[in-house]
């Protein structure tokens, strides 16, 4: 398996604070990787560095065999790494449909092509197809500012996928969403992502979500990766238990009930 995304000795410091310490990760094509860790453990810093929001202090980041260290977000996006955000970043005054149209327009445009009309039939059909894939048809003509939280996050992810990236980073796709909505939402998202064959890295607090959807877990603690293993193994790791899961009441309860191990076991069984 060839690595599509690779970080080599990546460090990030903000003054005296170290947000990332010697991060070495290699992600293969089509992997679904979960990134876990307590608040401030360096998960979002990792996502921000890979997507160009922050340049690493030292170390290299390679994508598809190409060094992308320090490139601007838009360049990294054009190369094929897209992301979603903890707080959905959408065009609030535009409708869901127009959000997708603008995203499609930018993805399509090269050079002077940006001066071509935005609203052409073919593009509108593609926007509608995306609406169907992410089950947002009912919200088509609603301004993004009026959307329920979950739908807005869905739109955020759908917009990130518009350019058909090779790697997608999801920053806490289920944060701010009610427990009942979490699984239906993630089912839609992961179903769509699998259909497109994209490599996914996602930051998640909820271990139930992690154990259900990922094939591999990266656990962060104080800027370091303390565990890199399949979910069942990672969630049983004593360090992960202490530094990652320990501080979260919801996860602790699940852990005690044995739900996580069972869930993780099921997933790895299913994968064979």
């Amino acid at each position: 398996m060839s690595a599509i995304l690779e970080t080599v000795g990546v460090n990030k410091t903000f003054g005296a604070v170290t947000a990332a310490r010697d991060i070495n990760v290699s992600v293969a094509k089509h992997e679904i990787v979960g990134i876990i860790g307590a608040n401030g453990a360096g998960k979002t810093t990792f996502v921000n560095m890979v997507t160009g929001w922050l340049p690493p202090s030292t170390g290299r980041i390679r994508f598809d065999g190409r060094d992308i260290t320090g490139l601007a977000p838009r360049k990294i996006t054009r190369l094929g790494i897209c992301r979603s955000f903890q707080v959905a970043q959408v065009f609030m005054t535009a409708t869901v449909f127009d959000n997708l149209m603008i995203a499609l327009g930018i993805a399509d445009a090269h050079g002077l092509g940006v001066l071509l009309p935005l609203r052409v039939r073919a593009r509108e059909e593609r926007a509608d197809a995306i609406l169907r894939r992410y089950q947002m048809q009912d919200y088509r003509d609603q301004p993004a500012s009026t959307l329920p939280q979950g739908i807005r996050k869905l739109l955020d992810i759908a917009m990130a996928m518009v350019a058909q990236p090779k790697v997608l980073l999801l920053d806490e796709p289920t944060s701010g969403i009610s427990v009942e909505e979490k699984f239906p939402l993630m089912d839609i998202v992961m179903g769509a992502l699998k259909e497109e064959g994209v490599t996914v890295l996602f930051v998640e607090h909820d271990m139930e979500i992690v154990s259900r959807y990922v094939s591999r877990v990266l656990a962060f603690y104080q800027g370091e990766i303390i565990c890199d293993a399949p979910p069942a193994e990672a969630l049983a790791d004593p360090k992960v238990k202490e530094f990652v899961i320990g501080d979260d009441l919801h996860n602790q309860t699940l852990l005690q009930a044995g739900a996580l191990q069972d869930g993780a076991q099921e997933v790895s069984d299913a994968r064979g």
Partner: peptide, 19 residues
């Protein structure tokens, strides 16, 4: 379309691949 879009959310514009 990058008028209101820029006004609404520059971060998203960047992450769609435009400056």
């Amino acid at each position: 379309s990058l008028t209101t879009a820029v006004r609404d959310n520059e971060i998203r514009v960047e992450y769609l691949g435009y400056s």
